[in-house]
Amino acid sequence: MAVDWQLAAFLILSVLEIGGSIMVVTAKKLVHAVFWLALTLVTIGGIYLLFLSEFLFLIQILVYAGAVPVLFLFGIMLTRRKIMEEVTPGEVLEGPGEAPREGLP
């Protein structure tokens, strides 16, 4: 039985890749989309490896490991509005910090 390991790896990687990219375009949460994008990019790097271009694979990881966090940051800034705005327990509802501000020069 001669298993074509390359083909098997290719198929596994492409399934991951297509699944990941579908998740990117359908994800409800922005940060999830970024996570799936990271997976997609790393698996595309894996395909580069199959095409014997290790250098490109490493550059792909290096560049996108730097670029994806920026996307992440953006996603965080846009999506985690909820915990930034929600009132923490024990907080005065009409706006904390009002009292000491009144008499400020």
Binding site: M77, R81, I83, M84, E85, T88, E91, P96, G97
Partner: peptide, 8 residues
């Protein structure tokens, strides 16, 4: 980036 309160 929205302003938010942090409890310390």
């Amino acid at each position: 980036m929205a302003e938010f309160w942090v409890n310390m």
